[in-house]
Amino acid sequence: MTKLNTKTNISSPDDFYADLIAAHEGLSKAESDAYNARLILLLANHIGERKILAEALEAARAHP
């Protein structure tokens, strides 16, 4: 596990996506931003490995 997994990995993708959007329901823009930040930090800690996190930071950049 030393590479960022960019293949299909989430079971029931539609359900996850719906949960993600639902989590933001009723939040203001600022609250949503704060929520996203907390979520990123929680997920990043779960991954833990700096190398994978670095790959994710790179992969998340907007495609030119």
Partner: peptide, 12 residues
């Protein structure tokens, strides 16, 4: 965004 992350860290 830096403040948002900072506060997220403190909250968590």
């Amino acid at each position: 965004v830096s403040r948002t992350f900072r506060n997220a860290v403190l909250d968590l």
